[in-house]
């Protein structure tokens, strides 16, 4: 498998679900080691694109590749995915669920890693507690642990801070920062433009199933007369005329 600079390559991707075209024609790439922001208003196709990239949805046409090949759970590249719709086996204990997902991803010491992580996030004493007995914030920490437990090469976070309190948000940002420093590529889907400005190298703004802006954060800001990303977002999704990048 030839190793290219890009860990993710999407080429002329199109998808139709239930007779409705969600993505018309989308092409972008994500470089190894970068933090990439996938932005857009609700229902514009961000999650659909990620699901198609991960093989959960079948593309109507076009190619979506991770590490040069169509993704499969058997792929050599290690993926960490925090979906938008997230949940866990609610009636099982924290440690059993974490160990199960660790084993599914081929970890040999999944239980030991899970206990270390729980210790790190202050949930060590809840290891044997049923997940539905935990608070929402505590469950989010468990989900985050499961997402990063196999030291992923590519981390995909779909609205990771949705519903997070400032403490958990800070914890997540620290973890993202740590993983990025270790060379992990991150795709971030978020509505928080401050996070994007702070973390992302490149961004893509989706509208009506196409990319209406794609490139480096500074280049896009320059194109929009150095407005901040919040203002650009409002300009684009407030139905103003935009030019495709």
């Amino acid at each position: 498998m030839p190793v290219t600079d890009n860990i993710v390559e999407v080429d002329h991707f199109r998808i139709k679900i239930g007779g409705k075209t969600i993505i018309k024609d989308l092409s972008f790439s994500v470089k190894r080691g970068e933090i990439f922001g996938l932005l857009g208003s609700n229902g514009c196709g961000k999650t659909t694109t990620i699901r198609a990239l991960l093989g959960i949805y079948e593309a109507t046409s076009g190619e979506l590749k991770i590490n040069g090949e169509k993704f499969s759970p058997d792929s050599s590249v290690k993926i960490g995915y925090l979906p938008e719709e997230r949940g866990l086996y609610k009636k099982e204990s924290v440690i059993d669920v974490m160990a199960h997902f660790g084993k599914l991803r081929g970890m040999r010491r999944a239980k030991a890693w899970s206990l270390r992580y729980l210790n790190q996030v202050g949930l060590r004493e809840y290891a044997k507690t049923r997940i539905d007995k935990l608070s929402q914030g505590q469950q989010q920490k468990i989900q985050l642990g499961i997402t990063i437990m196999n030291q992923p090469d590519l981390l995909i976070l779909d609205e990771p801070t949705k519903g997070f309190d400032p403490v958990n948000r800070k914890l997540l940002m620290d973890i993202i920062d740590d993983l990025h420093r270790r060379g992990c590529t991150i795709i971030l889907i978020t509505h928080y433009m401050d996070e994007v400005e702070k973390l992302c190298d490149n961004i893509l703004l989706l509208k009506n199933g196409t990319a209406c802006a794609y490139g480096k954060v500074m280049d896009i800001r320059k194109r929009f007369r150095y407005k901040n990303l919040d203002q650009i977002f409002i300009d684009i999704y407030g139905n103003k005329e935009t030019t495709r990048a």
């Binding site: 093989g55 959960i56 499969s72 759970p73 058997d74 949940g87 609610k90 997902f101």
Partner: peptide
């Protein structure tokens, strides 16, 4: 249905066939 109701399917599909 547990996987669907608890929203685990997506996570599972990335982890195993």
């Amino acid at each position: 249905t547990e996987e669907k109701e608890n929203r685990i399917s997506e996570l599972l599909l990335v982890s195993l066939k």
